[in-house]
């Protein structure tokens, strides 16, 4: 959606993701709860009920196939917004985002479409929503359940799941739906140490299969271990881009100097 699809050219050598001059801005409510009452009260007081949030400005980078790009930055830097722009969830206000291949996202541990439905039903709905066929979804389901280690819970309503089960299942779904480009936001924090190890190994496997991954993380060791290159964002702008060890070092110095304490709003 929100895209122009065209026939794939010879795309083998082209980057999986190309972002050129990306800016994302939107109007957000400043009226506390988003209600008609609050809006009318603010109008009566001649106060604005929304403000323009410039979440990303002038962002340009590429993610080659077979690479993992780590995205780092303080809360409110625009990391999640960037992943949503690449996924096509938030259209750009300026610039272009070119994505070559099937994207799979793991952006926030949601509860699927209906907590009354089973994990199996929610996975099917989620897959159908993003355009997969029932056969494609069912073909992967057993592997998804096994990887997530949730056993018989897959046929129970998701309202009884623990947050750890949600996280494991969400990660498992994302990595098993044949992603060509995987967009992950802090998912490695899901589950215990054993699952994190398994998740990390699975991501290495995807990279070796020439798939591209964008990983948002606050864990600097995760970034230096997994990333082939790193993007550092601060207040919606690029502060560093390149070798993970160097970018992480610069970022750590920046944080120690106290700059990151002045965080923007959580995006």
């Amino acid at each position: 959606m929100l895209s122009e699809s065209k026939p794939s050219p010879a795309v083998e050598d082209l980057p999986a993701v190309e972002v050129d001059g990306l800016a994302v801005s939107y109007r957000a409510s400043v009226a506390g709860k988003q209600t008609l009452k609050n809006t009318l009260v603010r109008m009566g007081r001649r106060q604005k009920s929304t403000q323009l949030i410039q979440a990303l400005r002038g962002i340009s980078f590429e993610v080659p196939k077979g690479s993992l790009m780590g995205v780092i930055g303080a809360n409110g830097a625009g990391k999640s917004t960037l992943l949503r722009a690449v996924a096509g969830i938030l259209p750009p206000s300026e610039g272009t985002v070119t994505v070559r291949g099937r994207t799979t996202t793991l952006l926030a541990t949601g509860v699927g479409f209906n907590p009354q439905l089973t994990g199996r039903e929610n996975i099917t709905l989620g897959g159908l929503a993003i355009g997969l066929t029932r056969a494609q979804i069912e073909g992967q389901l057993e592997e998804v359940v096994e990887f997530a280690s949730i056993g018989r819970f897959i046929d129970m309503p998701t309202k009884v799941y623990s947050s750890g089960m949600f996280g494991r299942l969400a990660f498992s779904v994302a990595v098993h739906m044949s992603p060509e480009i995987l967009l992950v936001d802090e998912a490695l924090s899901a589950g215990d140490a054993a699952f994190r190890e398994k998740a990390s190994a699975k991501m290495q496997e995807l990279i070796s299969q020439a798939q591209a991954i964008m990983l948002v993380s606050h864990g600097m060791s995760t970034i230096t271990e997994l990333a082939t290159h790193t993007l550092w964002l601060h207040k919606g702008r690029v502060m560093g881009y390149g070798d993970p060890a160097e970018v992480v070092q610069e970022y750590t110095k920046f944080v120690k100097a106290g700059h990151a304490a002045a965080v923007w709003e959580e995006i």
């Binding site: 959606m1 929100l2 895209s3 122009e4 699809s5 065209k6 794939s8 050219p9 795309v11 722009a85 996924a87 096509g88 969830i89 259209p91 750009p92 206000s93 300026e94 610039g95 272009t96 985002v97 070119t98 994505v99 070559r100 291949g101 099937r102 994207t103 799979t104 996202t105 793991l106 952006l107 926030a108 541990t109 949601g110 699927g112 994990g119 929610n122 996975i123 989620g126 897959g127 993003i130 355009g131 997969l132 949600f166 299942l169 969400a170 779904v173 994302a174 739906m177 992603p179 060509e180 967009l183």
Partner: peptide, 28 residues
């Protein structure tokens, strides 16, 4: 579950929308 993917190996170019209106043919 928090799953998202597009439907195939296409090239998607996301651009600013004119007055919030997506390309109607593609949207349909």
């Amino acid at each position: 579950m928090s799953l998202g993917a597009d439907s195939g190996a296409k090239v998607h170019v996301y651009k600013p929308l004119r007055r919030g209106m997506p390309p109607l043919g593609q949207y349909a």
